[in-house]
Computed example of a mutant assay.
Amino acid sequence: MTRPTRTHWAAITAVVLALLFAGAATVASAGGGEDGKSRPPTPTPTAASADAGFARDMAVHHQQAVEMSFIVRDRTQDDEVRRLAYDIANTQANQRGMMLGWLDLWGLPKVSADSEPMAWMQKDEHGAHSGHSAGHQAKDGSLMPGMAAKADLQRLGKASGKQAEIEYLQLMISHHNGGITMAEGCVKLCTVDTERSLAQGMVDAQRSEVGLMADLLRKRGAEART
Results as ranks from 00 to 15, higher is better:
R3A: 11
R3Q: 15
R6I: 11
R6Q: 14
T7Y: 13
I12C: 05
I12M: 12
L20T: 09
T26F: 14
T26C: 03
S29A: 10
G31N: 12
G32E: 14
G32D: 12
D51Y: 10
D51C: 07
V60P: 00
H61I: 02
H61R: 01
F70C: 00
R73L: 14
Q77C: 02
Y86K: 14
Y86C: 03
I88K: 03
Q92E: 04
Q95L: 02
M98L: 09
G101R: 14
L105A: 12
W106P: 04
W106M: 03
L108G: 05
S112M: 10
A113Y: 12
D114Q: 12
E116M: 13
M118S: 10
W120I: 00
E125V: 15
S130V: 01
S133V: 13
K139W: 02
G141V: 09
P145Q: 08
A149F: 13
K158A: 11
G161E: 06
G161M: 01
K162I: 03
Q163F: 00
E167P: 01
E167D: 14
I173L: 10
I173E: 12
I173R: 08
S174N: 15
C190E: 06
T194I: 08
T194V: 12
G201D: 10
S208F: 09
D215R: 13
R218Y: 02
E223H: 13
A224T: 07
R225G: 08
T226A: 10
